[in-house]
Computed example of a mutant assay.
Amino acid sequence: MCDVLIVDEDLAARQHVRGLLSSGEYQYLRVTEADSTARALPIVRQHHPFLVLYDPAVTDASGLDFGRKIKEHDPLIHVVVHSQLKMFELVCQAINHGFDGYLLKPVIREDLYHIFGRLIQNDLRHSLHQGAKRALVARQESPADLGNPIESAIAYIEEHFHEPISLQEVAERVYLSPSYFSRLFKSEVGTTFIDYLTQYRIQKSKMLLRVTSLPIEIIANNTGFSNSSYFSTTFKRIVGRTPSEYRAMMSALKERSDAEPAQENKTERE
């Protein structure tokens, strides 16, 4: 699975952004890199990342066309432009195309975190307002694409992860037998249907644990787990910590992250 996709021909720029994310409060996000849109598009289609950060100067990106393709494929994926060009016209075009942000290279940690915080909070408000139907903007459920059954299955998971979902139910939705659907899903995605669904639910629960003070029971219910005990057991098996321990760790990381700039400013004044 992929939460953040960085598309840039500049290896140093990709590693810089990855380093900023891995050393602070967003270290739980899974980051994937691509040096071309040809390599990035299959990742977008298969994993539907939370955010795609890309440089429009990538050789095969055709400027903002790549971002438009992402939005056409899934309007719920956040797109942020990452460029050395401080051009008012480019910024306006990005906004007009429905992109979610514009960052100048080299990326400043505070600017990157501000964008992530804003997008996560916006998605969370939508999620809670709609009864946690999806931690993204609301949209009507699209019919299954029988030519792309696995993509349809993944889209269904993203829209209904908070509800009881069975392999048989999703297989019937794409008109495949459960056994064949199960084999096809693992072949294309690289993991079983149940493992993918569980990982997706855990990822959503991480976001709620990090940015809200909702009780564990409510988070378990809002992410598709039958009860808080099963949620906690599954969470610890996958993450290595209980939900409460994970929340405490994220809170401590945020406090430390917030304290560092203040300490740096104090040192400069001295």
Rank of each mutant, 00 (worst) to 15 (best):
Met1Gln: 09
Arg201Phe: 03
Gly147His: 07
Arg210Asp: 07
Ala57Gln: 14
Phe185Lys: 01
Asn227Glu: 11
Ser152Met: 02
Leu11Gly: 04
Ala13Trp: 12
Gln84His: 13
Arg201Asp: 02
Ile157Ser: 03
Pro56Gly: 07
Asn122Thr: 01
Asn122Lys: 12
Ala259Glu: 15
Arg183Lys: 11
Phe116Asp: 01
Tyr102Val: 06
Leu104Glu: 10
Asp35Asn: 11
Thr192Ala: 00
Pro178Trp: 02
Ser83Pro: 12
Arg247Lys: 15
Gln263Ile: 14
His73Ile: 11
Ser179Cys: 01
Leu214Cys: 12
Ile154Arg: 08
Ser83Cys: 04
Asp100Glu: 10
Gly24Ala: 05
Leu85Ser: 08
Thr32Lys: 15
Leu90Gln: 06
Gln84Cys: 13
Ala259Gln: 15
Asp60Met: 06
Phe225Lys: 10
Pro42Glu: 04
Gly101Pro: 06
Ile6Asp: 07
Arg210His: 07
Gln263Met: 13
Val44Asn: 14
Thr267Leu: 15
Asp55Gly: 08
Asp65Gly: 08
Ser166Pro: 02
Ala38Trp: 00
Ala155Ser: 06
Ser213Gln: 13
Arg210Ser: 05
Ala252Phe: 05
Leu167Asn: 03
His16Lys: 01
Thr267Ser: 10
Tyr113Val: 02
Ser127Pro: 08
Val44Cys: 15
Thr267Asp: 05
Thr59Gly: 09
Arg109Val: 02
Phe50Cys: 05
Tyr156Gln: 06
Arg201Cys: 07
Arg30Pro: 00
Ile150Ser: 01
Thr198Trp: 03
Asp10Thr: 07
Phe193Glu: 00
Phe185Ala: 00
Gln121Cys: 03
Gln121Ile: 03
Asp195Ile: 00
Gly24Val: 07
Pro149Met: 02
Ile202Trp: 04
Ile194Trp: 06
Ala248Met: 06
Gln140Ser: 09
Ser244His: 12
Pro178Asn: 00
Glu217Met: 11
Asn221Ser: 14
His97Tyr: 14
Glu264Asn: 13
Thr242Trp: 01
Asp8Leu: 05
Ser228Asn: 10
Arg45Glu: 13
Gly117Lys: 05
Asp74Asn: 15
Leu209Ala: 10
Asn148Asp: 13
Arg183Met: 09
Pro261Met: 13
Phe50Met: 08
Glu172Gly: 07
Gly19Tyr: 08
Asp100Gly: 08
Gly67Thr: 07
Val79Arg: 06
Gln203Phe: 06
Tyr156Trp: 03
His16Ile: 02
Thr242Gln: 05
His126Lys: 03
Pro49Glu: 10
Asp8Met: 03
Val79His: 09
Tyr156Asp: 04
Val174His: 01
Asp74His: 10
Thr223Gln: 02
